[in-house]
Design a protein around this nucleic acid. Sequence first.
DNA 1: TAGATTGTTAATCGATTAACAATC
DNA 2: TAGATTGTTAATCGATTAACAATC
Lengths: 214, 214
Amino acid sequence: MSDTKPSAVPFQTIRRLPNYLRVLRKLSDDGVKTVSSDQIAAAHGQEAIQVRKDLSYTGVVGKPRVGYEIAPLIDAIAGFLGWDNTSKAFLVGVGHLGSALLGYKGFETHGLDIVAAFDSNPARVGLEIGGKVVLEMDHLTDLAGRMHVHLAIMTVPYEAAQEVADQLVLAGIQGIWNFSSAVLSVPPSVVVQNEDLSAGLAALSAKVAGVSKR
Amino acid sequence: MSDTKPSAVPFQTIRRLPNYLRVLRKLSDDGVKTVSSDQIAAAHGQEAIQVRKDLSYTGVVGKPRVGYEIAPLIDAIAGFLGWDNTSKAFLVGVGHLGSALLGYKGFETHGLDIVAAFDSNPARVGLEIGGKVVLEMDHLTDLAGRMHVHLAIMTVPYEAAQEVADQLVLAGIQGIWNFSSAVLSVPPSVVVQNEDLSAGLAALSAKVAGVSKR
DNA sequence: TAGATTGTTAATCGATTAACAATC
DNA sequence: TAGATTGTTAATCGATTAACAATC
């Protein structure tokens, strides 16, 4: 806490930053050099003031009448999210969803490199999916240590989730991206990001029914 | 009840309700009849007061010293989310993720029935995935009308997203569950639920880095 | 310069948590 | 009854939006 105090950034701001990054990269590819908060907002159906507020957390300052320089802004957001360095991750559970994520190319530009996949089903071990060979669960702990992997993507069934989580914790994993619908119980030092489809479906249902607050 | 004003329910409450539902169904299967807010909370690493507040929106009342009756509570939450009736949905884009969702069995208990899948790639048309045959995009509008389908799951690449969304709107789709990273532009009458993986990854990155607010 | 656009400070809004009376 | 647990009302907290001075 002494040197860099990690100034608290709103959770929602962090979730919006990747969207800005995508728009900025597109503009950059098109040869555009500067952009105003109003232009970024228009691309999202958002308000300019929110964009300015969000961007302020990255430390980048814009110029009145000009806007923001795109190149430094891209670097700042990518750096802020830690996406300028690649983090290694394991993927556990090579079912439909796990296979889909293994085949997804977009993670490379998001600082995530899935270095190995695991599955408890012997029939899946040895398969090559998305260019990665599926390994036995037994090797997980050993490999995590030797390869210095601290992140894991969990795409296992509800019933297996807690058991797998326990194994990941023992292997020294510090962050779990949880695609199962189970609520995981882990030590405080391990962070979990839940990606719960049923929550998203509930939100859609409520929006269609017009029952939600916004 | 027909013109009851749809009392505004917090967005976050709606996202938590499916979790309660899962726990309650499990307890019900185990033969348990009543449950306290404290017990539900314990299963989520949450606070009891939040559970009580959330449940209050369903209209179900508990009994002091006893808790809530599980059976009526399940019915109330499922009804509240509209998951007691099945809604038909189309799925557009049968890539890795689309195939994964087509194969997912859990939607049946969530009031969602994927009745048809579409893809613009001729090589995929005619394939059977998850028990559904992949159809040509040309048939979408006609079928939506004839089958009375009002929901669509979009699992198409970023570049194709807006074009597909336009087509869905023309077909009379009223709710889009958007798994592409594109921000869609649709008429106000059409609701969009974005399921953006990069937002989730950003949240995980920030949590691991310890930079977020909570 | 004049005016567009930023960044800061204050006000509003929504969600969570705390306090506590009601009651089975 | 006594005490556990609910539901309501108030306080706190965080995020968004508004107002506006600074400035290029």
